[in-house]
């Protein structure tokens, strides 16, 4: 049938017309697809997925390989930057803390009835058991040996030596230190001495035989020694001990000041 040439043109024209109709009907926006298209796409999609995932993996591996040197350089630069920023951040945080402390000290100084000179601790004696600190204010600021040193928490110690711009302070926890005190509740006079050991607890000795020492009792300066003004917090009694005959009592006192974290102090100048 098809070998006859008289059928060629009608078939060809029919095919062309059919083709035009097909193109025309599928030229618009199609929301539905035919079963043949659906089957064909479903058939090729696993292969498409497989190739695409292989391509992604190969591309990723290749990019990683190509970018390795750049990434290493970047990593190094970022590490340097991070270290720099961490240092800057640390400095800023430290400045903020210092500002906060100084603000508190300034407020304390303003409200205080004493003539105070604020100073910064710039050194500690080595080894630690010397219990001496060096502050950044000296004779030029009116500081001289014997002046009391305090913090916002309480008594720190006493100036031992002074140069033009520095002073050495003997801390109250040193065994050579002795401060006249009074119990806040019972009003018994006591002597607060530095610890003989490294316990950082002060020793409380009552001056009167009938004095009552109680755990939890606050001890403040008595003002009798002519060094410390009256009423400065020294610490709190944490332990009371009697001698073997029950005649005398002594106490151990937890200082109000944290001597391990001294950074800024005040020296009380004479009026």
């Amino acid at each position: 049938m098809f070998r006859s040439t008289r059928w060629v043109w009608p078939i060809l024209i029919g095919l062309i017309l059919g083709l035009l109709v097909m193109v025309y009907t599928t030229s618009g926006e199609r929301t539905q697809i035919t079963v043949v298209e659906r089957l064909l796409r479903d058939a090729v999609s696993p292969l498409q997925d497989g190739i695409t995932s292989i391509i992604y993996q190969v591309t990723e591996t290749w990019n990683s390989f190509v970018n390795l040197g750049r990434i290493q350089r970047e990593n190094l630069q970022l590490k340097e930057k991070l270290a720099r920023l961490a240092a800057e951040n640390s400095l800023l945080q430290e400045s903020a803390r210092e500002n906060k402390r100084w603000a508190a000290l300034f407020e304390f100084q303003q409200k205080s009835e004493y003539n105070l000179v604020a100073a910064q601790v710039i050194g500690r004696a080595i080894p630690d058991w010397f219990n001496l600190i060096t502050i950044d204010k000296g004779e030029l600021a009116g500081i001289k040996p014997g002046l009391p040193v305090i913090t916002t928490a309480g008594v720190v110690g006493q100036v031992r030596q002074a140069t033009a711009n520095t002073a050495t302070v003997l801390l109250a926890i040193d065994s050579r230190s002795a401060i006249g005190g009074i119990t806040a509740d019972n009003r018994d006079y006591v002597l607060v001495e530095g610890a003989q050991d490294q316990s950082r607890l002060l020793k409380v000795k009552p001056l009167a035989s009938d004095a009552r020492l109680e755990v939890g009792c606050q001890v403040v300066t008595s003002g009798l020694g002519a060094i410390y003004p009256k009423g400065l917090p020294i610490g709190e009694i944490v332990e009371v001990q009697e001698d073997q005959y029950g005649l005398t009592v002594t106490g151990l006192l937890q200082p109000a000041t944290d001597f391990s974290r001294l950074e800024e102090v005040f020296v009380i100048l004479p009026d």
Partner: peptide, 11 residues
Amino acid sequence: LADLLRGNFIG
């Protein structure tokens, strides 16, 4: 096939 897989202007 290319047109079918593309989905429009088939033919």
